[in-house]
Amino acid sequence: MTPALDPVIHPIQRLRICALLDPVTEEEFAALRDLLETSDSALSKQLSALAGAGYASQRRATRGGRSRVWVQLTPAGRRAFHGHVAALTALANHAGDPD
């Protein structure tokens, strides 16, 4: 059975966020923003959408007097991301079939 595309992850910026968070336990918000070359507000908006679906979570930690926000993929988010990538791969391969 072909896995289904996930509408929450489908927008390219959210897909990139998931791909960047997938191999790490968590990532700092500022580092993620710099990697994506986006603004704080744009990243917050995308993370809210992922958090709303239960795919991402955030925690605030203070160290050395500086407050930092850490972002992580939840297990459900990781599963959804892998399923979405499998669906994309199937779709791309299927269109390449001669029939």
Binding site: H10, L15, R16, A19, V85, L88, T89, L91
Partner: peptide
């Protein structure tokens, strides 16, 4: 066009 979109998304990943 779906396949093209899928390939673009896979390229981003």
């Amino acid at each position: 066009s779906d396949a093209v979109s899928a390939r673009e998304a896979l390229d981003a990943v």
